[in-house]
Amino acid sequence: MQRRKIGFLIIALLVVLYPLVIGDSYKVYIMNRSLIHAIIAMGLVTQVGFAGQISLGHAAFYGIGAYTTSLTVLKLGFPIGLGFLAAILMCVIFSVFLSVPSFKLSGFFLSLTTIAFGHIVWVIIVNWQSLTNGPLGVFGIPGLKLFGIKFNNTHYYYLLVATIALLYLFIKRITNSFIGRAFMAMRDDELAAECSGINTRNFKLLAFGISAGFAGLAGAFYAHLSGFISPESFVFAESTKFVGMAVTGGLRHLLGGIIGAPIVTFLPELFRFPGWETYYMMAATFIILMIVVFMPDGLAPLFEKGFNKIFGERDDVKGGSSE
């Protein structure tokens, strides 16, 4: 037990010290972006990995969240906190529209509707110029402030880490409960789950709602962190990247999103050798492809095993995985 505590302490220390050791504000900013993506990937782990409802349209919720907070803050004068809340709420409301097709569709056909949803939202953002300023985007989104101090990248980093810790606790409690069991039953055999008294519609609504809410929160963070948003951040390719992060980390593992997002973000950086600029993305993508093909459970189980080998006497799980 003592050893495990030391292990957790070391990880916590690394997380806390990261921005101080790195020192480079731009690198911390990139890390913040990846943590924002981790929030979305965590929601996808819940929705896709645990509840079995695929989504390739989450960039839409990311965008809805980002635009909702930006516009309510800039045009309606909301305090930023309220803008965050509005972003989450708006995404949860929109998630209802996306869950309705899932009552009838699954797998491939559901993924097509989520792609269509993502595209519709994107087209609206681009074309509703009076509201969104179209392709030019929204400028001058205020950053966060606390006690009169403007947040710098390091402040954002700590806020994101704390937020992720809370969200982790949230999905851990849910997935380890009777609700998570209903999610997994629905994922493994929808018909058998329903014949066992599970109202799968409610659980689809819940799964979509949770992950949309997460993506909305991430969108709000992104808007206030970068101060500028435009439609190109919410294109279809982003949606696939979020799913890619969740899969790389481990689609059915609670740590999947948290581990997957930074890896997918920073892996390309490892290949930025001079003269290699054209190929570094390809190399990184290839490695991610290899991970997905040869480790379909993602990197989180590997991480967990390594942790247990170094610090653990028992084989149980940091935070508890699904199984």
Partner: peptide, 8 residues
Amino acid sequence: IRLFERLS
């Protein structure tokens, strides 16, 4: 038989 694949 229809059991849940990943449930104990």
